[in-house]
Design a binder for these strands. Structure first.
Lengths: 194, 194
DNA sequence: ACCTGAACACCGTTCAAGT
DNA sequence: ACCTGAACACCGTTCAAGT
């Protein structure tokens, strides 16, 4: 019968899930602690029981975004595409992971997956190549995702190209294949001796 | 004799120069309109006479950072290194250019330089390769620069590698060369017919 | 042409206190 | 264990008004 004065008590996971949902709605620039708190019907200060800072919350979100990476011997190109699509799966996902990654709080996962894929593809110097591919995918995805968002809001001068996305997809595949060492290049000559 | 009540009147250029200097001192996160204004001994609202928004000011800074690119037939690797070093020349330069580039307000300059270099190197599909290299350099530089800053402030757990920078430099060179199509590999035979 | 002053609608974070 | 309430030190931006 009591009108439940405090029906919503939360934990770390529910806060993070709510924040991730809000990210998809409003984007990274408008993802404030106060907005997250409002969505949970809670005072802003309540969030600091679950996370020490906004940065720590964002790092948790970045981990959740990259955690959905398939862990298997799927090959480098598929692994890189999986990473890119995981970043695309949430609004501003690429930018969020990029700005969090350098702080080493997460995404070593993505690097490991790339190294494993390169090993199974038989590439030389897998660590160096994995690092290069990771940097490439994060840069590419961040730029493309920002452009997509700008396009959809008419904030950009109309391009004279009919489909920019197709060109960007080609750049992505070419990039990953080149960085992987071209071991699985399409219709390339058998192999030119160095 | 008058004690000069308003000695400092500014224009677009002086505001941008002051903002760029402040960026080097405090970093992108602390580069606020109010701080820039204080540095110019001016009210925050005065900045809006020269720039319509903070975003427009940041885009101007990004342009200044990439404007120092050497414009010549220097080859892809040298051009890419020049871009990277231009980004490194200012605190958070890579992040600033990365977040501004997608808005198309600048940095077409960098893309043009890369295309020209690729052409003079005789690479095939220079536009696609230039796009891939630009994405790679921006992603790489952003990550490395954030890591450098985190390292220097002890915000990162100490790495077990002796010199991480050396590995990152190798990843950069390998990345650019691979994306360029390996046409100018070091100590390669004179030229292998395609 | 360039700036002030005041206001508006926000931020992240801390901390004593409540339940 | 989890939250409130109040405060602190900030934000970007607008706009009438000054010189």
């Amino acid at each position: 019968m009591t009108p439940e004065p405090n029906p919503a008590r939360h934990d770390r996971d529910s806060v993070a899930r709510s924040a991730l949902a809000l990210l998809d709605e409003v984007g990274l620039a408008d993802l404030s602690m106060r907005r997250i708190a409002a969505r949970l019907d809670v005072q802003p200060s309540a969030l600091y029981w679950h996370f020490a800072s906004k940065q720590e919350l964002l790092a948790d979100l970045a981990d959740r975004i990259t955690a959905s990476l398939p862990r298997g011997t799927t090959g480098v190109l598929a692994t890189a595409r999986g990473l890119r699509d995981a970043l695309f799966a949430h609004r501003d996902g690429a930018e969020l992971v990029l700005s969090t990654y350098a702080l080493q709080l997460g995404s070593a996962h993505a690097l490991d997956a790339l190294i494993a894929a390169l090993r199974s593809d038989g590439a030389d110097d897998p660590e160096t190549r994995a690092t290069a591919i990771l940097h490439f995918v994060l840069g590419h995805a961040t730029l493309v995702q920002q452009r997509m968002h700008a396009d959809s809001h008419g904030a950009l001068p109309p391009s004279d190209e009919i489909d920019v996305t197709a060109g960007l997809d080609r750049a992505f595949d070419l990039g990953v294949r080149a960085l992987a060492g071209e071991v699985s290049a399409p219709r390339a000559p058998r192999r030119a001796r160095a």
